[in-house]
């Protein structure tokens, strides 16, 4: 069995560029890595019926999400030759233009990270019970549906 532990994925609020920068810096000691690939999900100021989205408030079924994140990690490591992988997702309010999802995969070789990253992001979108409430500038809201 795989010994990689399940990690805490959720971050309260937006994911800062400092946090992302520090995550990259932490990998300088892992010198078998030759390629990183990063996905950053950003909150879009969609305009819906003349109203603009100013923020998304994320909630989740956290226990189920932790289990599903762990399954996605295990599945990804079994499919791709990765050295390491990190996933962070926001909970709570994230303003338009801020980062709400950070996926970071690393491998000795570039080909693995291109396909692994797309796989992980699509799995997260499909399997993680996270719910986004789009808050408009006039403070009304609607529930986001992924396209």
């Amino acid at each position: 069995m795989n010994k990689r532990k399940s990690k805490n994925v959720f971050i309260n609020g937006a994911i800062s560029s400092e946090f992302i920068g520090q995550s990259i810096a932490k990998h300088q000691s892992k010198t078998t890595i030759g390629a990183h690939n990063i996905f950053l999900g950003q909150v879009r100021a969609d305009e819906i019926d003349g109203k603009k989205v100013s923020a998304i408030e994320y909630t989740a079924h956290e226990d189920m999400a932790s289990i599903k994140f762990h399954e996605i990690r295990e599945e990804t490591f079994s499919k791709f030759d990765l050295t390491c992988m990190h996933i962070y997702h926001s909970l709570g309010s994230v303003k338009a233009g801020e980062i709400c999802l950070f996926v970071f995969v690393s491998s000795p070789r570039r080909k693995e990270v291109f396909s692994a990253l797309e796989y992980v992001v699509e799995e997260i979108k499909a399997k993680i019970p996270v719910f986004g409430k789009e808050i408009f500038e006039d403070e009304s809201h609607q529930w986001k549906v992924n396209s």
Partner: peptide
Amino acid sequence: IALLPPFSGG
């Protein structure tokens, strides 16, 4: 039992 609307993470 959890009732889960369509997921909209990321």
